[in-house]
């Protein structure tokens, strides 16, 4: 709905909150990309930057919370306006979590560098990170453009992320069984993969907010779960068995 409240200050408040969300989204996209690049290129300065920038992301989330509370108190939003404010709350807290996961990846990149026997198999994580980053970009585009089709596409893509994570899980397990000295680095790598998989879930929640914002309803949760590592004992078997 176009912004044309009789009280134009209401429009300005809503615009301001949405601008904050986009700014936050941009920073989180960068955090994922930088965390993945820092890992790929063993760039410890970049990793340190990712950790430092997370503070800005946290601050924006707080600003958004304050602005939203104020808007609820002063404007008593209803219908589409209410759903917008509610979705802003949810989107910002999910972005904040994704930022935390990126920060954690950066932290582990630094730790990994100090470990002997660090693995050079960096491609899998990089591909996973790129997929998650792209999913987030699309989820945010869907949010700005109120694009239901794109949002539903993002939700469906979480399945791919889960499958990529499963493959990595198996790969790391194999390395650990090959040589116990691989266990420490592979545990870190596994946590990084898990971080990315969790980011995918948070992106999915953001895409679900687009559906709620536009339709006022939530899609039935018929999404297949691609992460089988926690439910299927077969998954813990490796190719080497």
């Amino acid at each position: 709905m176009v912004n044309n409240h009789i009280a134009s200050a209401f429009d300005r408040d809503l615009d301001k909150i949405q601008a904050q969300i986009m700014k936050m989204g941009g920073l989180v996209e960068t955090a994922i990309r930088d965390a993945a690049t820092a890992y790929e290129l063993r760039d410890l300065d970049l990793a340190a930057k990712v950790r430092a920038n997370d503070k800005t992301i946290d601050q924006i989330e707080e600003t958004i919370n304050d602005e939203c509370s104020k808007l609820i108190a002063l404007r008593a939003p209803t219908a589409i306006d209410l759903r917008l404010v509610l979705s802003v709350f949810k989107v910002s807290s999910n972005l904040e979590r994704i930022g935390d996961y990126a920060k954690n990846m950066a932290k582990r990149t630094i730790v990994l560098e100090g470990l002997a026997n660090s693995h050079d198999r960096r491609l899998g994580l990089k591909r996973l990170a790129r997929e998650v980053e792209l999913m987030l970009k699309d989820a945010l585009d869907a949010y700005v453009n109120r694009d239901l089709d794109l949002a539903r596409d993002v939700i469906a893509r979480d399945m791919d992320i889960d499958q990529m994570y499963n493959a990595l899980f198996r790969e790391f397990l194999t390395y650990m069984m090959e040589d116990p000295r691989n266990i420490t680095p592979c545990m870190h790598l596994h946590f990084m993969a898990k971080n990315l998989e969790r980011m995918g879930d948070h992106v999915t929640t953001i895409a679900e907010q687009v559906v709620f914002l536009v339709t006022g309803q939530r899609d039935e949760d018929e999404r297949d779960k691609g992460d089988m590592t926690s439910s299927d004992p077969e998954m813990s078997k490796t190719s080497k068995g």
């Binding site: 009280a7 939003p77 219908a79 589409i80 306006d81 006022g216």
Partner: peptide
Amino acid sequence: TNPKDPRTESYITG
């Protein structure tokens, strides 16, 4: 929260 008609929505959201 979720009116069906756009005229209702316009009115209640000001």
